[in-house]
Nucleic acid binder design. Structure first.
Length: 425
RNA sequence: GGAGAGAUGGCAGAGUGGUUGAAUGCGGCGGUCUUGAAAACCGUUAAGGAUGCAAGUCCUUCCGGGGUUCGAAUCCCUGUCUCUCCGCCA
């Protein structure tokens, strides 16, 4: 959520940011409602002040045994007016708030302006020693090799739940588990994150806090009976750990890493793009979340990206880094890097991680603050998060990049102590 | 799922309709004393909003929502959460 004061004072900046994000501009309505609200408040608060004075007078009169009948009648009228005004104010505030909740975060000035994914900027490509994009070796895609080695079974997953719910079998299941454990351990021991294991179902407030609601209701699974949402990412429960709290400045930055299953409806996607792991309703992800002081958040973003890259370098998976342009930036984020891993069979890059700085957009929604030691006043923190990483697309890259000509899979060296085997055949 | 108890400031904990935004204690901050520190003593210490150049003034908030009343932390309804007991259960 954007600061209404900032909007009021910088309407042009806000307008430009919204436009660059290809979002709908409802600034006129916002400014109008804001003005209306303030006018009503001023008027009503004056009435309330009079009511408070009157009430004190009544108390005084009663104590001294005087007659308060006339005063009480006048007070009644006053009070009715206040009640009426309050209900109008509530109405105006609700309207204003609804629009504000649908306004996107503004892009940071360092983000390239662009319309779509075409305009994203590739900032880095990393490949293991001896890697060659032009390799002519025949590689089975992850669905074929998964079936052949009996480690992935998309058909039976579909039978159990529906399409997009992968079933891992045997060494495939072990490899998935190993990958998750490796990534968690690495972030905990090499990057200083503390581990959390969050709930996978969250309430409405949590979903609003991180920005999934109200705008993206259609993308979420929802359990109506209990009013709970299966999480689309661990970002939601982990960021909400500190909802409505005032943190100690000395404790910042706070860095959490946690695993969760992620549930996404992915309504409207179909065809080739959704084959196998490429687009699924349930996948596994290790997520990093940071709460930081505002002036450090862009440095923290660079570190966050590097933490995610470390995993790929350890796994020896080719990847590239994209700086997203304004038009491809998500609703809540001010700046975002995507990390894409290489799929030789698809002959393209697959998004495996997304690392974002939300500045205080989420902190405002979720009311997450810290007490500034100098001013003694609470201020909003900046929140960041990044996948470190999602296993599904990463698994595609592993199964394809570690394939031998005979159709076996070599287990990446760093995962071997987690799997207990070094080859899948 | 059933029965009961509870939710108050950073923490603990008073307060059952009228200067209670809230006693008291702890903690924090500033000061006195001290060579320094501790102790003791004194003072200070919530958040959000409206208005104003500012000083300030005013409004709201005692888990959330609704109600009664001139006036609600306090009374009524409702939701959520916590605790205790019973039931069920990985």
């Amino acid at each position: 959520m954007l600061d209404i004061k900032f909007i009021r004072e910088n309407p042009d900046k806000v307008r430009e940011g919204i436009k660059n994000k290809n979002e709908k501009d409802r600034l006129g309505e916002v400014l109008e409602l804001d003005q209306k609200r303030r006018d009503l408040l001023t008027e009503t608060e004056e009435l309330k002040a009079r009511r408070n004075q009157g009430s004190a007078q009544v108390a005084q009169l009663k104590k001294s045994g005087g007659d308060a009948a006339n005063l009480l009648a006048e007070m009644k009228r006053l009070s009715d007016q206040v009640t009426l005004n309050d209900s109008i104010i509530t109405e105006v505030e609700e309207k204003l708030n609804t629009i504000l909740m649908y306004l996107p975060n503004l892009p940071h000035e360092s983000v390239p302006v662009g319309r779509s994914a075409e305009d994203n900027v590739e900032t880095k490509v990393w490949v293991p020693d001896g890697f060659n994009f032009e390799s002519t070796e025949k590689v089975l895609d992850h669905v074929e090799i998964g079936k052949k080695l009996k480690i992935l079974d998309f058909e039976r997953g579909a039978k159990i739940s529906g399409s997009g719910f992968p079933l891992y079998l045997g060494k495939g299941a072990t490899l998935e588990r190993a990958l998750i454990n490796f990534m968690l351990d690495y972030h905990i021991h090499h990057h200083g994150y503390s581990e959390v294991f969050p709930p996978f179902l969250v309430n409405r407030e949590s979903m609003k806090g991180t920005g999934q609601l109200p705008k993206f209701d259609e993308d979420m699974y929802f359990i109506e009976k209990d009013d709970l949402y299966p999480i689309p990412t661990a970002e939601v429960p982990i960021t909400n750990i500190h909802r409505s709290e005032i943190l100690n400045e000395a404790d910042l930055p706070i860095k959490y890493v946690g695993y969760s299953a992620c549930f996404r409806r992915e309504a409207g996607s179909y065809g080739k793009e959704s084959k196998g792991f490429l687009r699924v309703h349930q996948f596994n992800k290790v997520e990093m979340v940071k709460f930081v002081k505002p002036e450090t958040s862009y440095d923290e973003l660079e570190k966050l990206v590097n933490d995610a890259e470390d995993i790929l370098r350890e796994l020896q998976i080719p990847y590239r880094l994209l700086l997203l342009c304004t038009g491809d930036l998500s609703f809540s984020s001010a700046k975002c890097y995507d990390i894409e891993t290489w799929s030789p069979a698809e002959n393209k890059w697959l998004e495996s991680s997304s690392c974002s700085n939300f500045e205080n957009f989420q902190a405002r929604r979720a009311n997450i603050r810290f007490r500034n030691e100098k001013t003694k006043k609470p201020e909003f923190v900046h929140t960041l998060n990044g996948s470190g990483l999602a296993t599904s697309r990463l698994m595609v890259s592993i199964l394809e990049n570690y394939q031998t000509p005979e159709g076996k899979i070599i287990v990446p060296k760093v995962l071997q102590k987690y799997t207990g085997f070094d080859v899948i055949d």
